[in-house]
Protein backbone atom coordinates (compact mmCIF):
# COMPACT_ATOMS: atom_id res chain seq x y z
CA UNK A 1 0.00 0.00 0.00
CA UNK A 2 2.85 2.39 0.81
CA UNK A 3 4.15 2.18 -2.75
CA UNK A 4 0.70 2.93 -4.15
CA UNK A 5 0.28 5.90 -1.81
CA UNK A 6 3.65 7.24 -2.93
CA UNK A 7 2.77 6.74 -6.61
CA UNK A 8 -0.52 8.64 -6.24
CA UNK A 9 1.14 11.53 -4.42
CA UNK A 10 3.88 11.73 -7.03
CA UNK A 11 1.35 11.72 -9.89
CA UNK A 12 -0.64 14.52 -8.22
CA UNK A 13 2.53 16.50 -7.56
CA UNK A 14 4.26 16.07 -10.90
CA UNK A 15 1.29 16.04 -13.30
CA UNK A 16 -1.61 17.51 -11.37
CA UNK A 17 -4.86 16.47 -9.73
CA UNK A 18 -6.33 14.57 -12.70
CA UNK A 19 -3.17 12.46 -13.04
CA UNK A 20 -3.27 11.67 -9.32
CA UNK A 21 -6.95 10.76 -9.59
CA UNK A 22 -6.19 8.41 -12.50
CA UNK A 23 -3.46 6.74 -10.48
CA UNK A 24 -5.79 6.37 -7.46
CA UNK A 25 -8.56 4.78 -9.54
CA UNK A 26 -6.23 2.35 -11.31
CA UNK A 27 -6.80 -1.21 -10.14
CA UNK A 28 -9.64 -0.22 -7.79
CA UNK A 29 -12.93 -1.89 -8.64
CA UNK A 30 -15.60 0.75 -8.04
CA UNK A 31 -19.26 0.28 -8.93
CA UNK A 32 -20.83 2.93 -6.70
CA UNK A 33 -19.91 6.24 -5.04
CA UNK A 34 -21.18 7.56 -1.69
CA UNK A 35 -22.95 10.52 -3.27
CA UNK A 36 -24.07 8.81 -6.48
CA UNK A 37 -21.53 10.77 -8.54
CA UNK A 38 -18.09 9.55 -9.54
CA UNK A 39 -15.18 11.94 -10.17
CA UNK A 40 -12.92 10.51 -12.89
CA UNK A 41 -10.23 11.77 -15.25
CA UNK A 42 -11.96 13.59 -18.12
CA UNK A 43 -10.60 11.21 -20.74
CA UNK A 44 -12.22 8.27 -18.95
CA UNK A 45 -15.75 9.64 -19.48
CA UNK A 46 -17.76 9.96 -22.67
CA UNK A 47 -19.39 13.31 -23.46
CA UNK A 48 -22.98 12.20 -23.03
CA UNK A 49 -22.70 10.88 -19.49
CA UNK A 50 -20.95 13.71 -17.66
CA UNK A 51 -22.39 16.38 -15.38
CA UNK A 52 -21.12 19.66 -16.90
CA UNK A 53 -18.65 21.59 -14.75
CA UNK A 54 -16.35 23.99 -16.58
CA UNK A 55 -13.73 24.44 -13.83
CA UNK A 56 -13.38 20.68 -13.34
CA UNK A 57 -13.19 20.18 -17.11
CA UNK A 58 -10.31 22.66 -17.30
CA UNK A 59 -8.59 20.68 -14.54
CA UNK A 60 -9.06 17.46 -16.55
CA UNK A 61 -11.73 16.01 -14.23
CA UNK A 62 -15.25 14.84 -15.14
CA UNK A 63 -18.24 13.82 -13.03
CA UNK A 64 -20.38 10.80 -13.95
CA UNK A 65 -23.59 9.55 -12.32
CA UNK A 66 -23.22 6.09 -10.75
CA UNK A 67 -25.30 4.13 -8.24
CA UNK A 68 -25.16 5.56 -4.70
CA UNK A 69 -23.13 3.43 -2.32
CA UNK A 70 -25.19 2.52 0.74
CA UNK A 71 -22.18 1.80 2.94
CA UNK A 72 -18.49 2.65 3.06
CA UNK A 73 -16.83 -0.54 1.87
CA UNK A 74 -13.19 -1.47 2.36
CA UNK A 75 -12.65 -0.72 -1.31
CA UNK A 76 -14.03 2.80 -0.94
CA UNK A 77 -11.83 3.37 2.12
CA UNK A 78 -8.84 2.16 0.13
CA UNK A 79 -9.73 4.57 -2.65
CA UNK A 80 -10.06 7.33 -0.04
CA UNK A 81 -6.47 6.68 1.05
CA UNK A 82 -5.09 6.73 -2.48
CA UNK A 83 -7.16 9.78 -3.37
CA UNK A 84 -5.88 11.51 -0.23
CA UNK A 85 -2.33 10.90 -1.43
CA UNK A 86 -3.18 12.26 -4.89
CA UNK A 87 -4.70 15.37 -3.34
CA UNK A 88 -1.65 15.83 -1.11
CA UNK A 89 0.51 15.76 -4.22
CA UNK A 90 -1.70 18.43 -5.79
CA UNK A 91 -1.39 20.47 -2.57
CA UNK A 92 2.40 20.34 -2.77
CA UNK A 93 2.17 21.36 -6.43
CA UNK A 94 0.01 24.34 -5.40
CA UNK A 95 2.49 25.24 -2.65
CA UNK A 96 5.32 25.24 -5.20
CA UNK A 97 3.37 27.68 -7.35
CA UNK A 98 2.82 29.88 -4.30
CA UNK A 99 6.52 29.91 -3.43
CA UNK A 100 7.44 30.85 -7.02
CA UNK A 101 4.76 33.56 -7.02
CA UNK A 102 5.87 35.08 -3.72
CA UNK A 103 9.53 34.92 -4.65
CA UNK A 104 8.81 37.19 -7.60
CA UNK A 105 6.98 39.85 -5.58
CA UNK A 106 8.27 42.46 -3.19
CA UNK A 107 6.58 44.03 -0.21
CA UNK A 108 8.12 46.85 1.81
CA UNK A 109 11.32 46.55 -0.23
CA UNK A 110 11.99 42.85 0.33
CA UNK A 111 10.81 39.63 -1.34
CA UNK A 112 7.36 38.71 -0.02
CA UNK A 113 8.53 35.13 0.52
CA UNK A 114 10.80 36.37 3.32
CA UNK A 115 7.97 37.92 5.35
CA UNK A 116 7.56 36.15 8.69
CA UNK A 117 3.81 35.63 8.38
CA UNK A 118 4.32 34.06 4.95
CA UNK A 119 7.17 31.85 6.14
CA UNK A 120 5.07 30.75 9.11
CA UNK A 121 2.18 29.76 6.86
CA UNK A 122 4.51 27.87 4.56
CA UNK A 123 6.14 25.99 7.45
CA UNK A 124 2.73 25.03 8.88
CA UNK A 125 1.61 23.89 5.46
CA UNK A 126 4.62 21.65 4.88
CA UNK A 127 4.38 20.21 8.39
CA UNK A 128 0.71 19.33 7.87
CA UNK A 129 1.56 17.64 4.54
CA UNK A 130 4.08 15.40 6.32
CA UNK A 131 1.63 14.58 9.12
CA UNK A 132 -1.23 13.79 6.74
CA UNK A 133 0.91 11.53 4.58
CA UNK A 134 1.81 9.44 7.62
CA UNK A 135 -1.82 9.39 8.78
CA UNK A 136 -2.79 7.92 5.41
CA UNK A 137 -0.15 5.21 5.79
CA UNK A 138 -0.94 4.16 9.36
CA UNK A 139 -4.73 4.57 9.38
CA UNK A 140 -5.71 3.11 6.04
CA UNK A 141 -8.33 0.77 7.54
CA UNK A 142 -10.43 3.48 9.16
CA UNK A 143 -12.97 5.34 7.03
CA UNK A 144 -13.35 8.00 9.73
CA UNK A 145 -9.62 8.71 9.82
CA UNK A 146 -9.42 8.88 6.05
CA UNK A 147 -12.31 11.36 6.03
CA UNK A 148 -10.41 13.44 8.59
CA UNK A 149 -7.41 13.56 6.26
CA UNK A 150 -9.58 14.81 3.41
CA UNK A 151 -11.16 17.56 5.50
CA UNK A 152 -7.72 18.71 6.57
CA UNK A 153 -6.43 18.65 2.98
CA UNK A 154 -9.34 20.92 2.00
CA UNK A 155 -8.30 23.38 4.72
CA UNK A 156 -4.66 23.04 3.72
CA UNK A 157 -5.38 23.75 0.06
CA UNK A 158 -7.08 26.96 1.07
CA UNK A 159 -4.03 28.03 3.08
CA UNK A 160 -1.84 27.36 0.03
CA UNK A 161 -4.23 29.15 -2.34
CA UNK A 162 -4.28 32.22 -0.09
CA UNK A 163 -0.54 32.59 -0.61
CA UNK A 164 -1.20 33.23 -4.31
CA UNK A 165 -3.28 36.29 -3.50
CA UNK A 166 -6.02 37.38 -5.90
CA UNK A 167 -4.09 35.88 -8.83
CA UNK A 168 -4.90 32.46 -7.34
CA UNK A 169 -8.59 33.27 -7.66
CA UNK A 170 -8.45 33.52 -11.45
CA UNK A 171 -10.25 30.64 -13.16
CA UNK A 172 -7.11 29.65 -15.04
CA UNK A 173 -4.73 29.90 -12.09
CA UNK A 174 -3.20 27.04 -10.08
CA UNK A 175 -5.71 27.95 -7.34
CA UNK A 176 -8.43 26.26 -9.39
CA UNK A 177 -7.15 22.83 -8.33
CA UNK A 178 -7.99 23.73 -4.72
CA UNK A 179 -11.71 23.89 -5.52
CA UNK A 180 -11.77 20.93 -7.91
CA UNK A 181 -9.84 18.83 -5.38
CA UNK A 182 -12.63 19.42 -2.85
CA UNK A 183 -15.25 18.49 -5.46
CA UNK A 184 -13.44 15.21 -6.13
CA UNK A 185 -13.24 14.36 -2.43
CA UNK A 186 -16.90 15.31 -1.99
CA UNK A 187 -17.79 12.64 -4.56
CA UNK A 188 -15.74 9.79 -3.16
CA UNK A 189 -15.39 10.31 0.60
CA UNK A 190 -18.24 9.89 3.08
CA UNK A 191 -18.19 11.52 6.50
Amino acid sequence: MTNRITACEQAGYLDGLAAGLAQALTDVEIVAAPGGTAAVPADWASDGETIPHSLAAREGVAFVRVPAATETTATLTELGVLLGAARLGATRRLADHAVAHLSGRTSGGEPTIRKQLVLGTLADLLTEVEALRVQLMVSAASAETVADVHHRITDLDWEAAKLLGASGYLADSPGRSCHVSELVANCWVAG
Binding site: A33, P34, G35, G36, T37, I51, H53, F63, A68, H151, T154, D155, E182, L183, N186, C187, W188, V189, A190
Partner: peptide
Amino acid sequence: LRWAVVALGPGSLLA
Protein backbone atom coordinates in the same frame (compact mmCIF):
# COMPACT_ATOMS: atom_id res chain seq x y z
CA LEU B 1 -19.60 26.73 4.03
CA ARG B 2 -17.34 23.80 4.90
CA TRP B 3 -19.88 22.70 7.54
CA ALA B 4 -22.73 23.03 5.01
CA VAL B 5 -20.94 20.80 2.48
CA VAL B 6 -20.30 18.12 5.11
CA ALA B 7 -23.83 18.41 6.55
CA LEU B 8 -25.45 17.73 3.18
CA GLY B 9 -23.20 14.73 2.67
CA PRO B 10 -21.19 13.17 -0.14
CA GLY B 11 -22.04 14.48 -3.59
CA SER B 12 -23.61 17.63 -2.09
CA LEU B 13 -21.53 20.08 -4.12
CA LEU B 14 -22.80 18.69 -7.42
CA ALA B 15 -26.32 17.98 -6.19
